[in-house]
Design a protein around this nucleic acid. Structure first.
Lengths: 344, 344
DNA sequence: CTGTTAGCGCATTCAG
DNA sequence: CTGAATGCGCTAACAG
C-alpha cells in the first residue's frame, strides 16, 4: 500500500494509457468511456492523489487565497471567516490564514509572505492601511482586497462605519439623550476611531446646540475600558457609547461595581452585536454588524478581482440596530423588558 | 519592473553565473565571496522570490502544517492558534487552517484535503476521534496529532479533562455544597461530555453518600443553556456547574431574569476561564485552561513527529482555578468580593 | 479521441 | 568552489 508516491505516470502504465490521457481524465473530459473506466479503477485502487505542487507549478494558479487577520480570538473575525469560506469553498479555493496580532508591521510581512507562497489573491482585514501598504501593492502581482479599513488607492470593501455611527447617534437623540461620552479607540484606527465616532457625533449633535459628546480614548478590550470607567463617569453623561461591545462590557462592569444603575442612572450602548451582549445584565443595546455577510461579499469581490473583473462599485454592507435593555428613554417610559430568548 | 516572473535562471544570467550557483547561494553556502556578492545584488535589484511550488516539488517538504479546527469564533481556539504560531513560525513553518464547523464528517474531509495539499503534518482539534479517523491515518502518510480529544490509537495531546473536573468537584465540596447539577454537552464529546463530568462527579461525591449530582444535557452556546434553565432549576441544586463557561453564562442570564440571586440562592461555576466570565455579574468562578500553552506543546510535539522522533510521553498540560464571585460558601461566610481588575 | 514532446522553476548529482 | 545535466509530477500544445 505505497499510496503516497504513486504518480500520474504509474497509473498511466497500470491502465495502459499515456500520462496525458490520465491528465485529461483528471481535468476536462475527452477520454473514451472505456479508457476512462480503466483509469478510474486504477486510480481508486491505488488511492492516487495528484501532486499539488507539480500541478501548481504548471498551472500558475494555486487556488489558494491568503487571508490576513488582525487577531483571531474575536467573534467578528470568526464570522467573517465563515462568510469567506461559504463562498470560496464551493469554488474550490482554500484559504491560508495569517494573523497580525494587531501590528501593522506584521500585517505587511504577512502579505508579502502570502504572496511568496503563491496565493492567487490576498484578503486583508486591516488595522490600518498605510502608505507602506500601498507601496507593497506594486510588488505583489496578485489582487489585494482590504476590509475593516478603507483607502482610496486600494481595493476595499467594508462596513460603512460612519453610517453605523449615525444610526446610533440618531437612536440616542430620539431616546432623548443630550450628553454622551463616546469611549473609543485610537484615531490610528480610522474606521472605528474616526469614522464611527464622527458619524455618531454628527447625528447626535446635528441641530442641537445643547447636546454634547465627550470623547475618552480607551483600547480595545474590556479591561482597558473598565479602568477608564472613573474618567468617563466624571463627565456626567446620560449615555456612554462604547466604540465596540467589548468596551461597553467593561464599562458595564465598572458601573455595576460602583452600584451605578444601568439604564436608570446612566445608559450604555455599543457596536458589534456580539452574542455576549445579550447575556450580560442589562443586555446591551448595540448596532450589530453582519460580518458573515461581509465575508461573503469580500470573497465574491476577490473572485472577481482574480478573474480580472472590474471592482463593481460599492456594495451595501449590512448592519442593523439591536435594541435591548441598556438605554433609557427620557420623556416616555418604556418599561417592558424583552426576554433573553428574543434578543439574539 | 517585472518583479514577478524573474526566475533563478534570470538572476543567474544577470550575475554571470550558473543556475546551480544561485541555487547554492540560496540554500547552503559554497559560493565564492565575489560571486555571492554579485548574486546578492541582482537578487535584491530584481526583488527575486524563489517559486514556492517548484521548490516544494523538488524538496518534498512543504514547510506547511495543516490545522483542523472545530470552529473559529471561540476564544479558546484563538489562544490555541496563537500558541501554535509561537512555535511554528520561528521554525519557518506556515499554517493552513480549515474549519469543520463541529461536524465530524467535515473534519475527516479536511484532514484528507490538507494531506492532498502536501502539508508536512496535520494538527486536529477534534470534536471526536472515531474509527474512521483511525482508518484515515493509514492513507495519510504524514503525522496527525490530535488535541481536544483522545484516542488510544492516535497521537494525542490534550488537557486532562477528568482532572479539571476533579478540581472543580473538590472545590465545591470544600465550599460545602451537596447538591449539584452538571449542565453538560452530549456524551459524543468524550472529553467534555464524559471525562470532565466524570472527574467532577467523582471528586464531588466521593465518600459522601448524601451528596448528589444531577446531569442535564445542553448544547454548547449559552442560548441553549438558557433555555434549559427551568429544567435545571427544578432539580433544586445548591450549585450549577456548566461544562463550559458559555453554558454557565446562559444559566446566569436565566437566573437573573427569574430574580434568582447568585450566589446567595444558587451558585454557578464553569470551565474555560474565558475573559467574559470576569465581566458578567456575578463574575464566574471557573477552571481556566491555558490554551496558548497547549498550542505551544502541540506544535512542539508535531515538530518532533515530523522529525521522526518518538512521542515523548505525556506532557503536563495546564489548568488552574479561578475563584471569583459566583460560588457561595456554606458554613463560613467569606463576604469579600474582589474587584474586576484583579480577576483576570 | 490519444500519444508524443516540451517544459514549469528549482535542487542536486556529477565531473571538472 | 562551479557549471552541465537530470528530473521532481504534471499540463499543454502538437500531430496524429
Amino acid at each position: 500500500m505505497d499510496s503516497n508516491k504513486v504518480t500520474i505516470q504509474d497509473i498511466a502504465e497500470r491502465a495502459g494509457v499515456s500520462k496525458s490521457t490520465v491528465s485529461r481524465y483528471l481535468n476536462r473530459g475527452y477520454v473514451s468511456r472505456e479508457k476512462a473506466e480503466r483509469i478510474r479503477e486504477v486510480i481508486d485502487a491505488t488511492g492516487f492523489q495528484s501532486n499539488f505542487f507539480a500541478k501548481r507549478l504548471k498551472t500558475k494558479r494555486s487556488k489558494l487565497i491568503g487571508l490576513v487577520l488582525p487577531r483571531i480570538d474575536s467573534v467578528s473575525v470568526g464570522k467573517l471567516l465563515a462568510g469567506i469560506g461559504d463562498i470560496l469553498e464551493p469554488e474550490g479555493y482554500q484559504v491560508i490564514m495569517l494573523v497580525s496580532q494587531l501590528k501593522g508591521d506584521k500585517e505587511l510581512e504577512n502579505i508579502a509572505n502570502l504572496y511568496q507562497q503563491g496565493v492567487d489573491g490576498i484578503i486583508v482585514d486591516s488595522v490600518g492601511i498605510t502608505s507602506r501598504h500601498i507601496a507593497l501593492q506594486k510588488d505583489v502581482r496578485v489582487p489585494i482586497l482590504y476590509t475593516g479599513q478603507r483607502h482610496a488607492e486600494a481595493n476595499c470593501l467594508k462596513i460603512d462605519d460612519e453610517a453605523a455611527g449615525r444610526m446610533m447617534g440618531a437612536y440616542l437623540r430620539q431616546m432623548g439623550h443630550e450628553k454622551a461620552v463616546f469611549a473609543g479607540v485610537t484615531e490610528t484606527d480610522i474606521a472605528v476611531g474616526v469614522e464611527r465616532r464622527k458619524g455618531f457625533a454628527d447625528a447626535f449633535l446635528e441641530g442641537r446646540p445643547k447636546a454634547k459628546v465627550d470623547f475618552v480614548e480607551t483600547g480595545f478590550g474590556f479591561l482597558n475600558a473598565y479602568n477608564l470607567g472613573g474618567e468617563i463617569l466624571q463627565r456626567k453623561p446620560s449615555v456612554i457609547v462604547g466604540a465596540t461591545d467589548n468596551i461597553s462590557l467593561g464599562i458595564l462592569r465598572y458601573l455595576h461595581e460602583r452600584e451605578v444603575r444601568v439604564p436608570e442612572d446612566v445608559s450604555v450602548a455599543g457596536f458589534g452585536g456580539y452574542d455576549v451582549g445579550a447575556v450580560v445584565y442589562p443586555a446591551l443595546t448595540t448596532v450589530a454588524f453582519d460580518f458573515e455577510l461581509v465575508g461573503m461579499n469580500v470573497a465574491r469581490r476577490m473572485l472577481d478581482l482574480i478573474d480580472g473583473h472590474p471592482s463593481e462599485g460599492e456594495v451595501e454592507l449590512p448592519f442593523f440596530f439591536v435594541e435591548r435593555e441598556s438605554v433609557r428613554r427620557f420623556g416616555a417610559d418604556s418599561g417592558d423588558r424583552q426576554s433573553f430568548a428574543g434578543m439574539l
